[in-house]
Amino acid sequence: MILLRLVCLIRKDLMAVKIQKTGKQHSREWFEALMIAAVFAAIIRVFILESYRIPTSSMESTLLAGDFLFVNKFVYGAKVPMTDYRLPAVDTVERGDIIVFKFPKDRSLNYIKRCVALPGDTLAIRERQLFVNNAAVPLPEHAQFLNEMVPAGQPDQQIFPRYSDFNKDNYGPLRIPAQGDVLELNRNTIYLYGSLIADEGHRVSVMGERIMIDGVPATSYSVTQNYYFAMGDNRDNSLDSRYWGFLPEKDMIGQALMVYWSWDPHISLLSPIEKIGSIRWNRMALMVH
């Protein structure tokens, strides 16, 4: 009887150890699965697809503030984090693409605009009509103007480049720099190309009539990368290339793909019923173009 009781106790102890070991194995398996999932999610976010929220009205009515969309990052060649290396591109940027990029004046910010001109293109705006290489470009389907047109010859000192007679409705003509272009440098063109040269890693200064690059007088400069010109579809309410200049290829993140969620950003999450009531169901799965 005592022996039987002892066998039962040993059996219970062995079963407890087995159960405990199995529980640890399950925990480890779950942990490994979560780690693998996290790694795959990080790879997808960095190199393939990333979520982006529209914060302003600069792309209305094509995209609305409060839209959440997926950005295709591999199409233009995703950038490897903490390096200047890019993966091979699947496709090139085309005129009309809606692109997400690092804001060249503050690269901690992501911007979304429409690419309207490519490297080597000549861009002009005459009475709000956009021309690229002397061909009129139709206004995007949902684009809009909100304010009165500014007449030609009325300069806006907020417009790029400084001291030009350009304004938001009458702009250019302006050639978009391409890799290998040789830019003529003088007191007039330095306002157009100075920030580009500085962003490519050089010190730029003006001494009298001379342009200095890295302390050496220069009359020309060879461009080392491609540039683009980007504009918002809400043409009167968009901080775009007309105000800050050329978009470097290195700042390109990806192409806007699809709206997957949308609601009114002005309604607080502290008002859940009202917030849920603001969901824009008609914009779900909306392809961006």
Rank of each mutant, 00 (worst) to 15 (best):
C8D: 04
I10G: 09
M15G: 00
A16T: 09
V17T: 06
V17C: 14
Q20R: 15
K21P: 00
K21T: 10
T22Y: 11
S27R: 08
S27K: 00
F31P: 02
F31M: 14
F31S: 13
L34F: 10
M35D: 13
I36L: 11
A41M: 12
A42W: 09
R45D: 08
L49V: 14
L49D: 00
E50I: 15
E50C: 15
P55E: 08
T56E: 01
M59K: 09
S61M: 08
L64Y: 09
L64D: 10
L64M: 10
A65F: 00
L69R: 07
F70P: 06
F70H: 01
V71L: 04
V75K: 12
Y76P: 00
G77H: 06
G77I: 08
A78I: 03
K79F: 03
V80T: 08
V80I: 12
P81G: 09
M82T: 03
D84E: 09
D84A: 13
R86E: 04
R86A: 09
R86W: 07
L87D: 13
L87P: 13
P88Y: 07
V90N: 15
V90P: 06
V90K: 15
D91Q: 13
V93A: 12
E94G: 03
R95I: 00
D97E: 04
D97I: 03
I99H: 07
I99C: 03
V100L: 02
F101V: 02
F101T: 02
K102W: 10
F103W: 13
R107V: 07
S108K: 13
Y111M: 14
Y111K: 13
Y111C: 12
Y111W: 13
R114C: 05
R114A: 09
V116R: 01
L118E: 09
L118V: 12
P119I: 04
D121K: 03
D121P: 11
F131N: 05
V132W: 10
V132R: 05
N134Q: 15
V137R: 11
